[in-house]
């Protein structure tokens, strides 16, 4: 098991400390920024269920480093005391009533299955 605690990014700005950031770090200009190592790419691959070949891995590392450097532009922005906004509109309490509206859905559910056995999806064995 890979422990993320061991996967440290070499970064001077990733402490998540809003508003306490030097101003010379401006977007694209940051070139020394992030270093993504093999372990991190491997770990993210496990999370995302993507396996990358050697070449793809190098490309992914470079891409992610660039992207993270660019994203660092945000650190210029003082967001202290700002409430994170997940929904743009104050829409609340959208519910449905507890009434059965669906019948036997098995045929439609299974219609696109890559592999099915009778009325179930077949997958590689999950527990050894």
């Amino acid at each position: 098991m890979i422990n993320l605690m061991n996967v440290k990014l070499i970064s001077n700005e990733m402490n998540g400390n809003d508003g306490n950031v030097s101003n010379d770090l401006t977007g694209k200009e940051v070139s020394m920024g992030h270093r993504i190592d093999d372990e991190t790419i491997e770990y993210v691959g496990i999370l995302a269920k993507l396996s990358l070949t050697g070449q793809e891995k190098e490309k992914a590392k470079a891409d992610m480093e660039k992207m993270l450097d660019y994203i660092d532009t945000l650190n210029e922005l003082d967001t202290q005391g700002i409430e994170p906004m997940s929904h743009v509109f104050p829409v609340n309490n959208v519910f449905r009533d507890d009434v059965i509206s669906n019948g036997d859905g098995s045929e439609e559910t299974l219609a696109n299955a890559p592999l099915r056995k009778n009325n179930e999806f077949e997958v590689p064995k999950t527990i050894g």
Binding site: G16, D18, V44, L47, A48, M64, I71, P84, M85
Partner: peptide
């Protein structure tokens, strides 16, 4: 997908995702 998984991963959520929601 790689970028998205990374910014949500343990230890980075606040620095990236919450920061973006604040922005």
């Amino acid at each position: 997908i790689m970028l998205g998984s990374f910014v949500l991963s343990s230890g980075y959520y606040d620095a990236y995702y919450l920061k973006a929601l604040r922005a």
